[in-house]
């Protein structure tokens, strides 16, 4: 029983990490119809920012969450205006390749600046809280979960209640109709891209004490975000929570109960689930938006 509890706790903690990791990717895809292949690279940039802040200023990664958010958001706003905006109305493949290009540029730029050495970031929120002799809570991951949930709630409220949030949802659901009621689509896209990159940077800062920081850590994270998004429904905030938790718990359970599978092979689970989800419930386990190109004319 205690091993089960431990696996469940690990799974939920892992789910928290996946949640913050997937939100930005899912919303950019759902709202703009852009599959952001450079997603993992923006996580990596956020992680490096947190690492640099720690090296130079001794700031804890949890303390630099807000500055990282704004730096990445500003970067996202500019990138959308000068690059993504030019390909947004083109077929999916064009934006896919553009973002792939961005990912290569970011990987190699960071390698030039920081070298390919693996870095590890430290946080004071470390160690484990023992609940009983054999069950404990990993503190860092638990804190990541809390921040992820806070971001989730804030994002949900923003999208549901504010005028800008409503315009983002409107543009995601029907581009043509949004234009008709006077919503400036380009502005909505710039805000969406900025917001999502901001959240993605925060994800990077948060996981910098958990995963090694290095220029080529991005692609596996992009794949993971892709799997969770496809599984949980495009641009669905609640779906992202469900998908992230389901995947986190399944991976933790597999690692525990399936002999010799190890945590690395447990990653395979996410792709098995992805394939199953695409075959059985292509609209996502938790609803969400249909792909933009299927609805917009």
């Amino acid at each position: 029983m205690s091993t089960f509890s431990q696996a469940l706790i690990n799974g939920i903690a892992l789910g928290g990490m996946y949640l913050i990791l997937v939100l930005g990717f899912s919303i950019i895809w759902g709202v703009m119809g852009v599959i952001n292949l450079a997603h993992g690279e923006f996580v990596m940039v956020g992680a490096y920012l947190a690492w640099v802040a720690n090296e130079w200023l001794g700031s804890d990664p949890f303390l630099v969450v807000l500055p990282v958010f704004f730096i990445l958001a500003a970067f996202g706003f500019v990138l959308q205006r000068i690059l993504v905006n030019r390909v947004i109305d083109r077929p999916h493949l064009v934006s896919l390749l553009v973002m792939f290009g961005v990912s290569i540029i970011l990987q190699n730029a960071m390698k030039l600046i920081f070298s390919a050495d693996f870095r590890r970031n430290d946080t004071v929120l470390d160690g484990a809280w023992s609940l009983s002799e054999r069950v404990s809570i990993p503190v860092t991951k638990f804190m990541v979960l809390l921040v992820a949930l806070a971001v989730l709630v804030a994002l949900h409220q923003f999208l549901q209640r504010t005028r800008t949030g409503k315009s983002i949802r409107a543009a995601a659901q029907n581009r043509e109709a949004a234009r008709i009621v006077g919503i400036d689509i380009n502005k909505v896209y710039a805000i969406t891209f900025a917001l999502c990159l901001g959240m993605t940077g925060v994800a990077g800062a948060l996981i910098s004490p958990i995963l090694s920081v290095q220029p080529f850590q991005g692609p596996p994270l992009t794949l993971k975000a892709f799997a969770i998004t496809a599984m949980s429904g495009l641009g669905s905030v609640k779906g992202a929570l469900g998908g992230a938790m389901v995947l986190g718990i399944i991976e933790a359970m597999l690692a525990l109960y399936v002999d010799k599978i190890g945590t690395n092979l447990a990653v395979v689970a996410s792709f098995v689930i992805l394939v199953a989800a695409l075959v059985l419930r292509p609209q996502g386990l938790f609803g969400g938006l249909r792909p933009v190109d299927a609805t917009a004319s």
Partner: peptide, 15 residues
């Protein structure tokens, strides 16, 4: 079709 399908009637009118 130009309604915002996943919003309520009220929200559609608001928009």
């Amino acid at each position: 079709r130009s309604v915002f399908a996943q919003m309520t009637v009220h929200e559609n009118l608001e928009l």
